[in-house]
Design a protein around this nucleic acid. Sequence first.
DNA 1: GTACTATTAGGACATTTGACCTAAATTTCT
DNA 2: AGAAATTTAGGTCAAATGTCCTAATAGTAC
Lengths: 196, 196
Amino acid sequence: MSASATRGQIVSVADRLFYEQGYEATSFADIAAEAGLSRGNFYYHFKAKDAILEAVIAARMADTRTMLESWEDGASDPLERIRSFAHIVIRNQAKIMAHGCPVGTLCNELAKLEHGAKGDAAGVFVLFRDWLAEQFAALGRERDAEALALHVLMRSQGIATLATALGDEDFVRREVRAIDQWLEDQLPAVTRPLQE
Amino acid sequence: MSASATRGQIVSVADRLFYEQGYEATSFADIAAEAGLSRGNFYYHFKAKDAILEAVIAARMADTRTMLESWEDGASDPLERIRSFAHIVIRNQAKIMAHGCPVGTLCNELAKLEHGAKGDAAGVFVLFRDWLAEQFAALGRERDAEALALHVLMRSQGIATLATALGDEDFVRREVRAIDQWLEDQLPAVTRPLQE
DNA sequence: GTACTATTAGGACATTTGACCTAAATTTCT
DNA sequence: AGAAATTTAGGTCAAATGTCCTAATAGTAC
């Protein structure tokens, strides 16, 4: 296997294990075993655990950018794009109930570890925030676009945390519907049907 | 020192360290050092780390009950009581920005560790949920009291997570105001001033 | 008071685990 | 073939968990 392929394999496995088990609880041996590599080979590619974390975060940033682009391609309507984001918690419901939101839980863990990469991990949130803000701006809410974006992010994080803690599927569906409703209420009147 | 006092001291220190550093990242030695005990003595009181976790969760349940009672004593108006809850994130802003919500982050960590105590930890959420639902019921929303309670919990969790990740104080204040506004909008019209 | 017993405290190991390192073997490329 | 890149199989070292043993203290029976 080529070096970059092996490296990619390590990052991919580490990404999943960091999400499923947490960063601290995942050892070199865990990743090496799942990737089918020796521990030494592992060290050939990454000198320290911090380095894998950085690579995983970089991969998540790239994946997020790709996802946002796909949503832009999939819908020209900004409202529809925002809904694409809001509905992640339903599409990934099973995983979220088992392990929470990948971004939120990693940020929380790194905060407790006082790990320098916390800011990098939060970069994924910034990516979502700015993208959401763009969509709100396109809907005519330039003034408070960022606040609205953070509000949507906040709700998705709250849903994820309670979904993990309580495992209530009805709650998740209900709250996503509530986001949809809230979104409609945010539209300037001129863009809504006349009868409202 | 008496046995129960020593035990209480251990639980108190463990409670704080589990919050600040996380459960996994906190070792017996950490707790013993901060509590001023030897490791051997420590084992006299708690045979395993799980046992300390259980005691910490039990203590948090008790503390939460006490806090809820104090809010009941402090305000006869259910709306005011709910506000007491919603404003925790402002009162504890500094701690939340550093270490997140104690309940949410513990549940997330235990979920990833597949630790059996996750359900116990989530019990604190259930405590808050039921108490909030009681307040909403007292406001005339018996039908959807639990859904409203979970909505408030959800928002406080989302605020905590983003506060930790992004460290934005304005965001926290804005979203707490938004909860206050939302709360007022939930009141049946009859209980609101006539001009609305 | 003395002997006995239970509780509390302290610390010395033994075992395990995980991060990190090295040198030899193997593969790949030229 | 020979150099370079890659992989493997070990091993080291520190930290964490968990066990065991000893000593001090306090209470109790006589």
